[in-house]
């Protein structure tokens, strides 16, 4: 049996310039239909001029360890394949939208064909030993897909004492997008 994996994504907000290359790379790699997106960029500006601070975050499905979409899916279409990600089996999906209502991150949408869709961490690429399309396309190397079960030195190098921010931790979903601020 292959070694157990637990994928997570580290996003360096100081490197991100908000170019949206990750969004376009994802759209083209995963043939995301027009008007929809699996990942997106949020630009948050706070303060009063001239004392302003800006945070740019690339966002997508959090691949939660305790995912409410999986809990609420009535057919088992949303599932944990065992590599730390959350995936949707299109053949099982009825398009009931329970997962969309359940997601506290609003990471999902209904594909025009009828099934629920979202970021897969480019599972098809990972299987071939490649990195997700967004990670590959990022010109500033902001995005890093990490296997948390791997040697922790990579993660230590990545974090380098910086603060990690997770979104809506109090939702209890154990999200796996880590923003370095």
């Amino acid at each position: 049996m292959a070694r157990k994996k637990k994928y997570a994504m580290f996003i360096d907000t100081l490197k991100c310039v908000g170019c949206s290359a990750c969004v376009y790379a994802c759209k083209s790699e995963n043939q995301v239909p027009e008007g929809f997106c699996r990942d997106w960029v949020v630009q948050k500006t706070e303060g009063t001029f001239p004392h302003l601070s800006q945070l740019i975050r690339s966002e997508r499905c959090q691949h939660c360890e305790n995912a409410p979409c999986v809990t609420n899916c009535p057919t088992g279409a949303s599932y944990y394949p065992g590599d730390g990600t959350v995936q949707v089996d299109r053949n099982l999906c009825t398009g009931c939208k329970a997962c969309i209502a359940a997601c506290p991150y609003d990471a999902r949408y209904i594909h025009p064909v009828g099934f629920a869709d979202k970021c897969t961490f480019c599972q098809h690429r990972l299987k071939e030993g490649l990195q997700p399309a967004c990670v590959t396309a990022c010109p500033t190397e902001t995005l890093k897909l990490v296997d948390l079960m791997e040697n922790s030195s990579t993660i230590e190098d990545l974090v380098n004492g910086r603060q990690i921010v997770k979104d809506k931790v109090h939702a209890g979903t154990k999200p796996k997008l880590f923003w370095l601020v």
């Binding site: 809990t71 009535p74 009825t94 398009g95 009931c96």
Partner: peptide, 26 residues
């Protein structure tokens, strides 16, 4: 009518998901 993937409606009966109220309802 609300289901987006209507021809898959029978999929409710290929699984019983203990944590999903919709599955209980089906």
């Amino acid at each position: 009518l609300d289901l987006e993937f209507k021809i898959h409606f029978w999929r409710f009966y290929t699984a019983f998901i203990f944590t999903s109220p919709m599955s209980w309802g089906a």
